[in-house]
Amino acid sequence: MINTDGAGTWPPQASHRDSWPASLQPYHDIFLDLAPLLPVDQICVNDAINQSRRIEYRTRLQKLLQERVDLAAVESDLIMSEDSKTSSLTSDGYNGFFACISTLRHAFRWGTVPIVKVAQQEKVINFPSELDLPWKFLRWRYGSQSPGGNTMSNFYCNFDSDGNLVYAVNRSMPEPIPSAEHNLIYSFTEPERKVCIVSFFLEQSLTYFKAVPIYYHIVQSILFYENGQKLKCKEHLKKVNLHLRTALRIYYENVIDSKIPRSVFTAYIQGFHGWAAGENVNGKYIEYDGISGAHLVLFNLLDLFLELAPFLEEQSFVNYIPASQRKFIASIKSHAFRGEAKRAGDVEVVLQLEDMVKQLRVRLFANIQNSH
Rank of each mutant, 00 (worst) to 15 (best):
L131H: 07
N282W: 05
L353A: 13
R139P: 03
T103K: 07
E253Q: 12
K123N: 11
D77S: 14
D355P: 03
M152P: 05
V240P: 00
A14M: 02
Q352M: 07
T9I: 11
L248D: 12
R105W: 02
L237C: 00
E287R: 10
L302H: 05
K230I: 11
F265P: 01
S316V: 13
S258K: 14
T189C: 14
Y288W: 04
V124M: 14
G149A: 10
F98H: 13
I185A: 10
L133Q: 13
H243W: 14
Q359W: 02
M1P: 05
L351D: 13
H372G: 11
L353D: 10
L138S: 08
Q369A: 14
K123P: 04
D5M: 12
K230P: 02
F98Q: 06
A168Y: 03
L104T: 03
N282G: 05
L65E: 13
H16G: 09
K232Q: 01
F328M: 14
K210L: 10
L223F: 00
M356A: 15
A14V: 01
S102F: 00
E354K: 11
Q204C: 15
P134I: 12
D77F: 07
Q270I: 05
Y216D: 00
K85F: 10
N227I: 00
C100W: 03
Y27D: 04
R245T: 12
T4I: 10
N370T: 13
I2T: 03
H106R: 05
V240W: 00
E226Q: 14
S292K: 10
L206Y: 03
I218S: 00
D83I: 07
T103E: 09
Y251L: 10
K238D: 00
G96T: 08
S205W: 08
I49H: 15
E253R: 09
Q220Y: 00
Q229T: 01
I291H: 03
F31W: 14
K123G: 07
L71T: 08
G345T: 10
I55H: 11
P310Q: 01
T90G: 02
Y167R: 05
N370M: 12
E122R: 15
E75G: 09
N367V: 14
Q25T: 02
N95W: 03
L131W: 06
E340G: 10
S52C: 12
E253F: 03
A211K: 00
Y94V: 03
F299I: 12
W20P: 01
S23L: 03
A323G: 10
D289W: 04
N3G: 01
Q66S: 15
